[in-house]
């Protein structure tokens, strides 16, 4: 599996595990900020922007908040 596909899989997993919370998007965003290296965040955002990533909507929403703080 390519690195970006792996990142997408990890992000979707995080979304699945926060799906039991009302504030899932915030939790996904916070988790990625706290535990992912900036290069990983950047690669996933670029992968998403390429249109090839199969990401859950909550992940996409969370990615929009990264780097905006």
């Amino acid at each position: 599996m390519q690195e970006v596909q792996q990142l997408a899989k990890m992000a979707n997993q995080i979304a699945d595990n926060f799906s039991f919370h009302d504030d899932a998007v915030d939790r996904i965003s916070d988790h990625i900020k706290r535990f992912w290296a900036p290069s990983m965040q950047r690669k996933l955002i670029e992968f998403d922007q390429s249109g090839e990533a199969e990401l859950k909507p909550e992940v996409r929403a969370a990615l929009k908040t990264l780097g905006t703080d």
Partner: peptide
């Protein structure tokens, strides 16, 4: 101030060439 790569992330990044 930001987190670095974890072991599996290092391996993935190695294969990607970074």
């Amino acid at each position: 101030p930001e987190p670095g790569l974890r072991i599996p992330n290092m391996f993935d990044a190695s294969i990607s060439g970074n």
